[in-house]
Amino acid sequence: MNPYFFLNHSELSQIRLFRSSDGILHLEQEGKGFARVTLIRSFPYTMPDRFISVRSAEGHEIVMIQDVKLLAEDSFQAVRYELDRNYMIPVITQILTVRKKGSKWHFQIDTNYGPAALVMDNLHENIQPVTESRWMVTDNEGRRFELSDPEQMDARSREHWKKLI
């Protein structure tokens, strides 16, 4: 581990991230303040809450948060809010129906953002694996959805999924 940008637990609990009344995200670390910081997930799929790179307005990395859980409560909330805005990939929780109409695939799904209907030209290009048990589903309009761990879905969804991939 490079001690240069990994903070230990006590250092992590001392950094403060907060949103000022004008809506801008700030970072305070060892008395230094940074405004308009941005957050980047290093592992957006596999470890969405770990290894969050905090970058200055100019894009330089200020700190790396190994685990958001180690942050103090208010910082944790601010980070959560910002990450939610920065990563808008709904996670598929259920596959309700799969229909093939003509040459197109019509899916009714449920996601953590609520139900959605997808139309895809084909599956071999629109559904791509990102890791062993994670897939990125892109519909014809370019909207993206994540499907993680199909085993966690209900029996009907699993049945649909098994036939597709």
């Binding site: 004008d22 957006p44 920065n86 990939i89 709904p90």
Partner: peptide, 18 residues
């Protein structure tokens, strides 16, 4: 821009509002 979408912000005298 965000990953998978974007937000529309307005900037007012009091700051930025999504």
């Amino acid at each position: 821009e965000a990953f998978g979408g974007a937000s529309f912000f307005i900037i007012t005298g009091d700051g930025e509002i999504e």
